[in-house]
């Protein structure tokens, strides 16, 4: 017993001495991957954004790429479209998702069937969904126009009209993401203590008041989290644009990531693509910091 009590501190001292090396050893594998596949590419992108090259010309350092970027109408169009897309997809899909979650939070056979139905689109890969919607949106022959035609509406070129194409892309995104966000809200709602709601009920709070003053504040962290996910989706989902419109007609559905893809792979303008990447990652980073801050605030509120 005494032997054990005397050896124990010495073991822990020895362990403490070896500790940093063991820790570093254990961290090395993931550090290698992080360095090779995250930090190194990030560094390369930043370097590329500052490297100005011409055809068979000598490269030099400078901010020309950023100058060209801001002067490029296509970049302006991509930013504008991305903002419209962000507002157009995030607001409706979050409101719908929350609505569905509130309506379907009690588990009955009917509500679980509906939940499955609403969550189903998230299981379909975006590329596959986009390929299907190309046919649904076919002017006149597609499902959508076929049924609208029965109400006497004439054919609509959903993806080929610059004033409608972005709206069509937004509609698919809402359809695709709402179910996914609903799942988060369902989980968030399950975490709200029932006794709080019951107490409010006894105190005479009406359903709207209970939602406004209990459910919504307690859902704060969930909302912030879903908002971050939705913001990331807005900047990182591009599959449907590539499949359905290629950014057209006339740039009306071009978005930041698609613009970067075009510059890098169609025009081989690595400098411009890198500059656009730096800009969009910067915005993404700023938005994430803001959202995470409000997320933390939400948690404090709960406590």
């Amino acid at each position: 017993m005494s032997a054990a009590s005397t050896t124990l501190p010495s073991v822990s001292l020895a362990a403490r001495a070896r500790w940093p090396w063991a820790a570093y050893g254990l961290l090395t594998p993931s550090a290698i991957f992080l360095l090779a596949f995250t930090y190194w590419p990030v560094l390369l992108v930043v370097l590329n954004s500052l490297t100005v090259t011409g055809f068979h010309g000598v490269a030099h350092w400078g901010l020309d790429n950023f100058g060209r970027l801001f002067a490029d109408d296509h970049f302006g169009a991509a930013v504008r479209n991305n903002i419209v897309y962000a507002i157009g997809t995030i607001a409706p899909s979050l409101v719908l998702a929350l609505g569905f979650a509130l309506g379907l939070k009690d588990t009955t056979r009917f509500s679980s069937a509906l939940r499955t139905a609403i969550a189903l689109p998230m299981l379909i890969p975006l590329v596959a969904a986009a390929s299907l919607f190309v046919f649904i949106f076919l002017p006149s022959a597609g499902l959508l126009d076929y049924y609208l035609g029965r109400f006497g509406l004439s054919e609509t070129n959903w993806l080929g009209d610059p004033s409608l194409a972005l709206g069509s892309i937004i509609a698919i995104t809402i359809w695709k993401n709402t179910g996914y966000y609903m799942l988060f809200f369902l989980a968030g709602l399950a975490g709200i203590p029932q006794d709080l709601l019951d107490a409010a009920k006894i105190d005479g709070a009406r359903p709207w008041q209970r939602f406004r003053h209990i459910t919504l504040p307690l859902l704060g962290p969930t909302i912030s989290f879903v908002l971050i996910v939705a913001l990331l989706n807005v900047l990182t989902q591009v599959d449907h644009v590539i499949v359905m419109t290629q950014g057209g007609p006339s740039d009306s559905t071009s978005m930041l990531l698609f613009y970067i893809y075009q510059q890098a792979h169609q025009n081989y303008d690595v400098g411009l693509a890198s500059a656009a990447t730096v800009m969009s990652v910067g915005v993404l980073f700023a938005l994430s910091v803001l959202s995470l801050r409000s997320l933390e605030r939400g948690i404090h509120h709960e406590v």
Binding site: V134, L138, P139, E155, N157, L159, G160, D161, P162, P249
Partner: peptide, 10 residues
């Protein structure tokens, strides 16, 4: 000819 962009499938 219809207005707007039509793809090969359409």
């Amino acid at each position: 000819m219809p207005e707007g962009v039509t793809d090969a499938n359409a």
